[in-house]
């Protein structure tokens, strides 16, 4: 696994650096996940399995519902096992909602938002956590403060603002408002306060490292687990975001959630097709996680690799 080798070598280098004090390497305590050396016992697996079943159940039932007919779904008791209609419903959902463009758009939107949020939040979070500057606590309070105002109503002035810029129905209307979030900045700040020892930055500064170098060589490595988690959460959020995209976009240039909204029309909405759509909207996300999971989790786990 090449991905796991990167932190491994870094780790070793840092340890060496730590031994040779004053060397150009930045000293960094060896980090190790809590109890990581401990293997999970059978009880752990049992508890995790229970959590997993509860977590998965609604998604599995979505798939069951998507494999049935609308009429069967109306009956009691509701179906508890798969029927034979899955591919038929998936096909109908895919066609009716023209999910192809939507998937492409959503991938673009979610990726841009994720990269932007992780990058900008880490920078701002680092500044708030470790640098002293004027108004820093006031600005941080402002950031947290804005999280307290529910955003649902701001949609109205935001749309007027976007329309004035001539952007209605364009993808940047859904990208820009969430390109940076107060949540991300606050999250990174809280993480770095604990995970990034101040001496490390000072040592680097004594060595004459520029700010950018410090960010690249000290902050980013220290922030990796949190960046990975923030990226994961942001991507899911951007993928599933609903209320604003549906106001801001139309079906000729939709995200997945906007496209799914075209399902189940007519006076008798077909629940099984709607469920098939919901499944199609969620599955790519989960498949991507499983495929790239090693990398993402590798980020989360980077501290765990022992030299």
């Amino acid at each position: 696994m090449t991905t796991s080798e990167v932190p491994l070598t870094q780790e070793k280098e840092q340890e060496k650096g730590a031994k040779a004090k004053g060397d150009r390497g930045f000293r960094r305590p060896r980090m190790l996940g809590a109890g990581k050396q401990l293997h999970a016992g059978p009880v752990t697996y049992v508890v995790l399995t229970v959590f997993a079943l509860v977590s998965l159940a609604p998604l599995v039932w979505t798939a069951i519902a998507a494999s049935r007919t609308d009429q069967r779904l109306a009956q009691t008791p509701p179906p508890l096992w798969f029927g034979g209609n899955l591919f038929n419903n998936l096909e109908r959902a895919w066609e009716e909602a023209s999910l192809g463009t939507a998937m492409f758009n959503t991938t673009l939107v979610a990726t841009t938002i994720t990269v932007g949020t992780v990058l900008f939040s880490t920078l701002a979070g680092f500044a708030f956590a470790k640098l002293r500057f004027k108004f820093s606590s006031a600005l941080l309070l402002l950031t947290i403060g804005t999280m307290m105002i529910p955003p649902q109503l701001a949609i109205v002035p935001l749309y007027l603002w976007m329309a004035d810029l001539g952007w209605s129905n364009q993808l940047q209307t859904v990208i820009l408002p969430t390109l940076c979030t107060a949540f991300g900045t606050f999250f990174m700040r809280q993480y770095l306060v604990q995970a990034l020892p101040t001496e490390l930055i000072e040592a680097a500064r004594v060595d004459g490292a520029s700010s950018l170098r410090i960010v690249w060589h000290v902050v980013f490595p220290a922030a990796r687990p949190a960046m990975a988690v923030l990226g994961l959460l942001t991507f899911v959020f951007a993928w599933n975001d609903f209320l604003w995209p549906i106001i801001a976009l139309n079906q000729d240039n939709p995200t997945v959630q906007v496209a799914l909204n075209a399902l189940g029309t007519g006076y008798v909405p077909d629940q099984s097709v709607i469920m098939a759509g919901a499944l199609l909207g969620t599955l790519p996300l989960l498949i991507a996680f499983l495929l790239f999971g090693k990398q993402i989790v590798g980020g989360i786990m980077q501290g765990a690799i022992k030299g």
């Binding site: 749309y159 007027l160 329309a163 004035d164 001539g166 129905n169 549906i246 909204n261 189940g264």
Partner: peptide, 27 residues
């Protein structure tokens, strides 16, 4: 012809009102 569907009326109508008043984005 392209159809833009917003299934729920409680989302469709506020959306339409906003767009009408913004003077942009209406169908």
């Amino acid at each position: 012809i392209k159809e833009n569907v917003t299934t729920r009326t409680d989302v469709y109508w506020p959306k339409t009102l906003t767009r009408l008043q913004a003077g942009a984005g209406t169908d």
